[in-house]
């Protein structure tokens, strides 16, 4: 039977959760934008509908992190593993699209967790893996998807459970959040705070229908199929003429995971750092010789689209875009990935 959490009890629940974990990350308002931040007081959390400016992926895949530190003295080198101080973390307020996006990060950074024996378990990102194991996701279903949202167009739902450990769906008429434990972690969370939850016969069906009904964007059917033959065919030149080649789309995206590695430091030592990068940047694939396999912005934009809609499904069996709409809203020139895919596959 489903569980219900009274709307007024949400903060009590979060406070209790915060006490158990080392870190609670949730959406807050800052300088006029909504962002995921580690919160001190649960009262800071905003429950406003709609997505934060960028996703919470940095909890697991920080925008910059040290892979190791090095000290140089004379000719000798000493390497040192970095600490990972975050510890047990609970993310609250993950929208279903963002939570579903974890599948992509998991597939790329922690492939061994997947039950696919063909994927050689040779390489895992140990930092991601550790953080992932220490993170619990409390999802928050959307009742009012915005004009950029298109999760339903890629087979997801504003009340979907994928990626969440525990999903809360607001049922304002009943004055409760419907709580669904999706994973064992979620079960444990419910069990640990059982006194706050009651059994209920309510379902989220109606909320789901209403929320899905608000999404105006057309379904992207046959994704993967048509795109498989569209490397040269669609007029990428025209579709991407206005793309500026920045990294805004990639950095706000819950599934983008490209990164760069550089050594930062001075003559005495420093760190080898891994940090976010974007396939939209002109130098992303440039060789030192000057040769660039993706020499034009349209070629780079094509990479962005095909990576999400073809290579990831083909290669990792995951949906590369979860329809959060962030790139559409954030792009300075409104490059609209849903519009583009609908156009080239339609």
């Amino acid at each position: 039977m489903a569980k219900a959490l009274r709307t007024e009890a949400l903060l009590d629940f979060l406070r209790a959760v915060q006490q158990d974990a080392r870190r609670l990350v949730a959406p807050v308002e800052e300088d006029g934008l909504r962002l995921f931040r580690a919160v001190d007081r649960v009262e800071e959390i905003t429950l406003a509908e709609g997505n934060t400016r960028w996703s919470f992926k940095e909890v697991l895949f920080p925008r910059s992190e040290a892979l190791f530190h090095y000290r140089l003295s004379g000719g000798s080198v000493a390497l040192q593993e970095p600490d990972q101080p975050e510890g047990e973390t609970v993310v609250f307020g993950a929208r279903p699209c963002d939570a579903a996006g974890l599948a992509v990060l998991d597939a790329v950074f922690a492939p061994n967790g997947r039950p696919d024996p063909d994927q050689a378990p040779e390489h895992e990102d140990p930092f991601y893996r550790r953080r992932r194991a220490q993170t619990t996701i409390i999802g928050l279903a959307c009742l009012e998807p915005g004009p950029a949202c298109f999760c339903t167009a890629v087979g997801l739902s504003p009340t979907g459970t994928a990626g969440s450990d525990l999903l809360l769906t607001p049922l304002p008429d009943q004055g409760v959040f419907l709580a669904e434990a999706v994973t064992e972690k979620g079960e444990r969370l419910l069990a640990a705070h059982a006194h706050l939850f009651t059994d209920t016969d309510d379902t989220k069906e109606q909320a789901t229908r209403a929320a899905e009904g608000r999404i105006q964007r057309t379904a992207l059917s046959g994704v993967g199929g048509p795109l498989a033959t569209l490397f040269e065919a669609p007029p990428w030149e025209e579709l991407a003429a206005r793309c500026l080649g920045c990294g805004a789309c990639a950095f706000v995206c819950p599934t983008c995971h490209c990164f760069d590695i550089v050594d930062e430091g001075n003559a005495a030592g420093g760190s080898r750092c891994k940090f976010w990068d974007s396939c939209g940047f002109a130098l992303f694939t440039a060789h030192t010789s000057g040769h660039n396999p993706r020499a034009t912005q349209p070629a780079r934009f094509r990479q962005r689209v095909l990576h999400k809609f073809r290579y990831l499904p083909e290669r990792f069996g995951v949906q590369g875009c979860v329809g959060c709409g962030r790139c559409i809203a954030t792009c300075p020139v409104n490059m609209d990935i849903q519009e583009v895919v609908a156009k080239v596959t339609g």
């Binding site: 300088d31 934008l33 920045c246 300075p332």
Partner: peptide, 16 residues
């Protein structure tokens, strides 16, 4: 620092 701490180095400022 409060503002810059949000900077993603997406270089949209430069690109635009």
């Amino acid at each position: 620092q409060g503002h810059f701490s949000r900077c993603l180095k997406c270089y949209a400022c430069r690109a635009a």
